[in-house]
Design a protein around this nucleic acid. Sequence first.
DNA 1: ATGAAAGCGCTAACAG
DNA 2: CTGTTAGCGCTTTCAT
Lengths: 334, 334
Amino acid sequence: MRHVAALAGVGIKTVSRVINGEPNVSAATTAKVLAAARTLDYEPDLQAGNLRRADGRSRTLGLLVSSVDNPFAGSMHRAIEDAALERGVAVFASSLDDDPDREQQAVSTFLRRRVDGLILTTVSESQAYLAPELRRGTPVVFVDREPAGITSDSVVSDNAAGASAATRHLLERGHRRIAYLGDRPNIRTAQERRRGFFDELGAAGVPTRGIPVIEGLHDAESARHATLDLFRGDELPTAVFSSQNLVTIGVIRALRELGRHRDTALVGFDDVPLGDLLDPGITVIAQAPQDIGRIAAERIFARLDGDTSPATRTVVPTRLIERGSGEITPRPEG
Amino acid sequence: MRHVAALAGVGIKTVSRVINGEPNVSAATTAKVLAAARTLDYEPDLQAGNLRRADGRSRTLGLLVSSVDNPFAGSMHRAIEDAALERGVAVFASSLDDDPDREQQAVSTFLRRRVDGLILTTVSESQAYLAPELRRGTPVVFVDREPAGITSDSVVSDNAAGASAATRHLLERGHRRIAYLGDRPNIRTAQERRRGFFDELGAAGVPTRGIPVIEGLHDAESARHATLDLFRGDELPTAVFSSQNLVTIGVIRALRELGRHRDTALVGFDDVPLGDLLDPGITVIAQAPQDIGRIAAERIFARLDGDTSPATRTVVPTRLIERGSGEITPRPEG
DNA sequence: ATGAAAGCGCTAACAG
DNA sequence: CTGTTAGCGCTTTCAT
């Protein structure tokens, strides 16, 4: 900046004014400065500026997700990025791999970089460690999973209602032996889905004793194995509810291997890529990751713009998409 | 930091030493400082430190891809993030949507934030605008697409060889009327794939006059329409080569609608999610986005570590995965 | 082993 | 309209 000022033959502050488009600079001076900046390939240093700037904002956001390599996270990320771009805000992303230690480390890393806000899919038991930062005024929005041990804005799918809808869908088609294949039970989202499932069975008066429940599934392979095991017993389920997209994929693989994909109903929570092209098509409770991301970004920016109202909890509805697998009726013999 | 120093009753520099783990601080002092930092919830400001730090590094990388909401980009992103994490480097990601203006804007934004290096899937005709930055010593690695108008490290798939392999695969099964459905022809990657396709036809002595070629396809919908149009004519192709994953998806949809997915062969460039579960399974030329990302990150860090050897061009091999759609033989009548 | 002073590139506050 | 001075939070250099 000094160099530009020297080359343009003006004061350093004038350069600052031109770069930031502040008023009260003559057109001639502006032109001179711009020319000098161009010949020197000058790029202003945003970080240095933010050090002194009144609002102290870095125009930066931190996003923590299970993995950036995951369709759900990717959609959310994209929506957040688009909202951020409009405000000249850049986004850091970090993958957590369901590791609580990594969550705290990543949060700390972002805080050191003075992100203006944090959007996170938490994986730790409690996010109380964020309290001091929150008190300091850094907005934090929880997406997909609600916070524990702390109060802050959250944007989540209607997990219980979605799971209920899926279960009802299967019950209405006559299924009674519906297997529940779930994620790790310490994840609140998984608990909600489980609750929705059992509440609906209860409402229908279906005894839950005989219901096969397998939990702790975290990827397609473990879900595949669990499904294969499940079908080794007698009293086979006539339908499966899977609580997460990777689990759904594992179930699909297993049912195919067993040759049971045409006579066993399946409804999965969260959409599956190309689910409409499979045979049968996969009936799912689709979430709206784009909406979740967009709303989360809106919350962050509202907070940054001074909104100090109490923490909000936004529930984004899910949608049942019938594609075939969920409309299979029970085998006559059970 | 001043506050911490005051609370601990030491000089500000001592705090700096403790935080950065520098030697020559007594254990007692270290403990005092750490305690003070904890009670004040102190997080060092990385940006402020970098302002004065000798190497002037921000420990930050910029990644530019078509869209963070895209399986290929997601895999690459993840691999880069993992490599960066080991070195305490955070990653900014930005989606370009094939918009050259957006590319330059995003690059500029990242430069202003003083990223230590840039990894980009370029969409502009020429990247000559990066020359000054390159001269200044910022490493730039091009991924998936090679640079034009500038020389720098690049990591790309073997596009021509992959397309050749796909074409050979179809020729060997007796196909002669193979339709080519391609991306925008101004993309170098698309050109390479096209070249591989026609080279292989030429090598086999197949006349290229009658070969249906449709280009300029950028998403699944446009590809679907193009395929539907293609099958409205007479002299239907017996096989299709699609040059990109979204195009492949569009072709699959169209073939299904036409009821031709079992008698028309299809090989797609780039893998398709769940391609193994479709019926028929989708034969593809799979790329290795994780490898590309990993190698790109390695290049960046090697440059940052002082490697000044000439620009390298790393070609990552592709792999033909047979799943059924590519092994369909021509209809008897043609 | 510790601290004081200077300065990184910039913006804020206040002159001229 | 333009320039000067101070200082953001930290690291460097040099002294103690």
